[in-house]
Design a binder for these strands. Structure first.
Lengths: 211, 211
DNA sequence: CGCCGCATCGTCCGAAAGGTGGAAAGGGCG
DNA sequence: CGCCCTTTCCACCTTTCGGACGATGCGGCG
């Protein structure tokens, strides 16, 4: 019997995951929670599980929230409790997936995966295997080819303003530097991202979840 | 007894909605589907329902897909079958909500709404009342102030490509028109959106969920 | 029928952005 | 101590954009 913990802040999705798990003869839900804190408290309090199903977008509500994110929760669960974490989320940007995998997630699935694939993934995770959905793997491979993300803090700052639609001049005034500096940063950014223009750089940044 | 139809392309979410509905003594699921076409076919074939729970992001997969979107499906269901549609979706941009409401949706909820609120919304929808979540109402009010979105189909097409980082020249070749036309469209777009540059227009478009 | 919105194209010109090739100052590291 | 990276800045030049006109044809609407 595989003991599963559900960690998702959407009640509906939680109910759906429960329905899938309960529909399998060889697994059951032993705990269900809507916050990362609660999940960790339960595990710290002696809770035992074979697999944790976790929404990566845990606590995504506000920018000022001090709540734990899905990636941090994943890392803590994996390292402190040696429990496999299967990340199940709705939309997956490249950065999301990478963050989950780097945090030690055992698997990554999108919520539109068929229930049968989900059940298989849970069994694999419980057995310690690393499972990534076919589309996820494709994304990761495409992602690896492009070196990306060696951007310095300053460059990222500039890139963010570019993606917000500011002109070089506006960015220069906002960062208290000259236009030449902004252009210089932008040139470096485009080199690192392999883009041809500011707009393309902004689009790429968004696509990779770097904003 | 309230007869409910589930229309969502995420199996997990569908299972969750079913669990919520089945947990209520006064309602039941009479049909469940993952595509808008199937939903319409079922209704056209004589299927009767008191409420349709529908994911707005129906068939959001590819740009080249000929599948029906959630908004179109909503409009068809409401007008052809006089059945209340309760839109339940994960992330709701202003444009999404507006599209749903304009298409005639009876209600709009986010998936992170508590199950009890969802059940209440279903009863309200079945009774013909229009129910919008508190946060949704707040968004709508803020949305009304900005004029926006009188963009023509062609202009939107151009805007999408701009947001994807294409140059005017690339867009012109992609749409089989001259660069002058692209610039003309772009000028109109910036006038309508009140933006000063292509990048700002792209940023605004994203913010308003027009992509 | 005229008017308006839409889509298409054109020219001209100035402004913005991008590319090239520097340079200088500071920090970190072997 | 040199070496590299980051950040800052400069000048020069080319490409691209954006604004300001105008012009055509089409379709809907009163």
């Amino acid at each position: 019997m595989i003991d599963v913990v559900l960690a998702d802040d959407h009640p509906v999705v939680r109910a759906g995951l429960r329905a899938v798990v309960d529909g399998q003869p060889d697994m059951r839900v032993v705990h269900e929670t809507g916050t990362a804190e609660d999940l960790l408290a339960w595990l710290d309090g002696g809770g035992r599980a074979d697999v944790v199903l976790l929404d990566l977008r845990f606590g995504d509500a506000g920018p000022g929230s001090t709540r734990l994110g899905g990636a941090e929760a994943t890392g803590t669960v994996v390292h402190r409790h040696a429990t496999p974490v299967l990340v199940v989320t709705t939309y997956g940007t490249d950065a999301d997936i990478l963050a989950a995998v780097e945090a030690g997630a055992t698997g990554y699935l999108l919520k539109d995966a068929p229930t049968e694939e989900l059940a298989r993934a849970i069994r694999s995770a419980a057995a310690g295997e690393v499972i990534l959905g076919a589309d996820v793997q494709r994304r990761l491979l495409g992602r690896m080819r492009s070196p990306g993300e060696n951007l310095s803090a300053r460059e990222l700052e500039v890139l963010r303003l570019v993606a917000a639609g500011r002109s070089n001049d506006a960015i220069a005034r906002e960062l208290f530097v000259s236009v030449a500096t902004v252009k210089s940063h932008l040139a470096h950014i485009s080199t690192k991202l392999g883009t041809q223009s500011r707009t393309e750089a902004a689009a790429t940044a968004r696509e990779r979840g770097m904003l």
